[in-house]
Simulated scan of single mutants.
Amino acid sequence: MAIWVFLFRTKKKHPAAIYMANLALSDLLFVIWIPLKIAYHLNGNDWIYGEGLCKVLVGFFYGNMYCSILFITCISVQRYWVIVHPLSQQRKNNQIAIAVSISVWVGIWLLTTPLYLYDQTVKVRDLNILTCHDVTRQSQAKVASGYFITMGILGFVIPSMVCIVAYILMLQSLRNSVIDENISKKRKKTVVLIITVLVLFLVCFTPSNIMLLIHYCLLLSGVINNGYGFYITTLCLASLNSCLDPFVYYFISEEFRDNVKNTLMCRSARTVERMRVSFSALKYSKKSSTYTSDSGNTESSNC
């Protein structure tokens, strides 16, 4: 629904819509493969779909998580830019947003490529199961540790710092601005965006990435990590971002809110536009009638 709204129902394409469409596409690609993950855990962590699908599942899982973080970071920076530079050229900003989106996809594809280069399935003979990404071979421990620590820093730590700086500068800009109705509305939208993104980071991304960094640091040090239950819980929380991302669309995009409301109320956009035009004409007609009545030329009439 979000992709449909941002690509086909949004009249004026703006950078936020471009970033949110990419964020929705990332979630869709993740959701396509999540049934295999569910089936894997329901089957007692026994993977029966082959090495290739295991690699695809792992690649899309981490690709979605870091794509979501980067596109949310892009949305945060874009909101800062709109508040600080409200008169910047729209067309140029759209071109920048498209270029940044392509760069994010290419960067994530390059970062997740190593996941396809080594075996993700490991046979656990004591339990007679074939795990998918849950067990790391001893021969691959150093490579996997270095890779995921790098991913955690590039994909989580740095974007988190960028978001924090953008929000601080945003709030400072709004605080230093002359207080009027428009600034007040922008401030409310900014606060809502900050709260929504903070919830996303604190609930979805922070636990999983901290656990990821701890796990692979311990693995690199040769220490056995017995926190598998907590590890699975944090991965579930990371998957939850696909459920919470629509709240970002809802609070940022007025057109998304309108289309969601119209869809839930079984109204088409064309019907809503006709209602809006009719209501505007009705208000204009009443004002005109009242004006002519006051001037003494004609009597006011009911529509």
Rank of each mutant, 00 (worst) to 15 (best):
C54V: 08
A99H: 07
G155F: 00
T121P: 03
Y40N: 01
K261V: 13
C54S: 08
K185E: 09
L25E: 00
Y284Q: 11
V143D: 15
K92V: 01
L25Q: 01
P15L: 02
S208N: 08
S177V: 13
F256D: 01
G155R: 02
I98H: 10
T233N: 03
L235M: 12
R257G: 02
R137E: 07
F247R: 13
L115Y: 07
T263Q: 07
S280H: 14
A97N: 11
H215P: 01
I158T: 04
C163G: 07
C236A: 14
D294P: 06
L174D: 08
D294K: 15
I83H: 06
K287C: 10
W47I: 00
K123N: 11
S239K: 05
V100S: 07
L193F: 13
Q95F: 13
D126E: 15
G59H: 02
C163W: 11
D119T: 09
S301K: 11
Y118M: 09
N226E: 10
S221G: 08
L127V: 08
V260G: 04
N64V: 00
S221F: 01
H41S: 04
I48S: 05
Y66H: 10
V56A: 15
P159D: 12
E254R: 12
K55E: 02
C303Y: 10
K186G: 06
E181Y: 15
I18H: 04
V178C: 05
C236D: 08
Y116A: 10
C236V: 13
F6S: 11
Q90V: 13
E299N: 14
T290Y: 03
A21V: 03
L23S: 06
S177Q: 14
Y118C: 07
N241R: 09
G50T: 07
W4M: 08
I48F: 05
N45Y: 11
I164E: 01
T298A: 14
A24S: 07
A99M: 10
R276E: 12
A97Y: 10
C217N: 15
Y291I: 06
A99P: 03
I108Q: 15
D27G: 14
I153P: 09
L117K: 04
S285P: 00
C266N: 15
M20W: 02
Y49D: 02
Y62C: 08
K12Y: 12
A97S: 12
